[in-house]
């Protein structure tokens, strides 16, 4: 019996977004990263085209973080002491994008400063030829204070700036407009809010080709199903022609998975949780791969081993040989 494989006919596709600029494009990056452009649900090659694979970003910090799991800090070793080395290590791990997160305070507890931010951004830009993202610590006022100098320092590099949220996006968008960058538009697990913020950012004059959409997701066991379904819905809406949902999606399984108890804590937890290190690695990996299946275009990771592990899955899924 010849079974006819059902194929969906989609009418639209995900928008292409390019991060980073080479010297011909006014920047200094050795290569750029383009994501998006697919015209079907993830990896269903038989009903659409997938010009760009999902990409991996590796999170680095402007200084050694105080609150990261010891497993991560051990795995990173010395590289976590210096953002430039960290960026190089991330490149060596196989990152497509360096995701630099700025701290609210410096190591000695004083507030981070624009001068320090400029220095760190410069260092990272000099240390790697990969495109970069620079995001604030996630507190509106501090974000705005730190992202503007970062944007200025990286003028023309087409950096992904963040994080734009409904209550605080205007300054970051303005900085992106002023210095030719992109922004990450983050909303709390809701299709309509995702759309709305994209519209608001676009209304300020930033072209849709410079907006990455971050629908927010929880970690495995901590609300991943919400993010998963919101992403599936956004992608379905995008493919059926809803223009403001067609931004490629960036999500942060690294941060989500590494803040939960399963990854952070090795002692005093149920025996049934199993080996701490393997569990923690699984937590980040499975959160990431599950989100890739629901449409993520960029996933941000933290652990070096997982970068390789997830890379292999993406490569397998992206090979249209079967």
């Amino acid at each position: 019996m010849a079974v006819e494989i059902p194929k969906e006919k989609w009418t639209a596709q995900v928008r292409k977004v390019t991060i980073g600029a080479t010297s011909e494009e006014g920047g200094t990056r050795a290569k750029t990263l383009t994501v998006g452009g697919e015209s079907a649900l993830p990896f269903l090659h038989y009903e659409g085209s997938f010009p760009n694979k999902p990409a991996l970003a590796v999170e680095i910090r402007d200084r050694k973080p105080d609150d990261w799991s010891p497993l991560l800090l051990d795995a990173l070793g010395e590289t976590a002491e210096d953002p430039a080395k960290w960026a190089q290590a991330a490149e060596a791990m196989g990152a497509d994008l360096i995701y630099l997160v700025l701290s609210a305070a410096t190591a000695d507890g004083n507030p981070n400063t624009p001068e320090n931010v400029r220095a760190v951004v410069r260092k990272v830009l000099d240390a790697t030829g990969l495109p970069i993202a620079v995001v604030g610590p996630g507190q509106a006022e501090i974000d705005n204070e730190l992202i503007v100098p970062a944007a200025e320092e990286a003028d023309g590099e087409r950096v992904l700036l963040g994080v734009c949220e409904e209550k605080n996006y205007r300054t970051i968008v303005a900085a992106a407009l002023a210095h030719n960058h992109l922004v990450q538009s983050k909303t709390p697990m809701d299709v309509n809010l995702s759309k709305q913020l994209v519209i608001l950012i676009n209304d300020m004059g930033l072209p849709l080709e410079r907006i990455m959409m971050d629908p927010t997701t929880g970690a495995l066991g901590y609300g991943i199903e919400y993010g998963y379904s919101v992403m599936e819905r956004l992608r379905l809406a995008a493919l059926t022609g809803d223009k403001m949902t067609q931004q490629p999606m960036i999500v942060d399984p690294g941060a989500e998975a590494w803040k939960v108890k399963e990854s952070k804590v090795g002692e005093g937890v149920p025996e049934a949780w199993g080996d701490w290190n393997r569990r923690a690695l699984n937590w980040e990996t499975l959160t990431a791969t599950t989100l890739i299946h629901s449409g993520a275009n960029i996933v941000i990771l933290r652990h070096p081993e997982n970068v390789a592990r997830v890379r292999k899955v993406i490569d397998d899924l992206s090979s249209a040989t079967t």
């Binding site: 968008v173 303005a174 002023a178 004059g205």
Partner: peptide, 8 residues
């Protein structure tokens, strides 16, 4: 310009 654009 950033302040004019972001509304501050």
């Amino acid at each position: 310009g950033i302040q004019l654009v972001d509304g501050r």
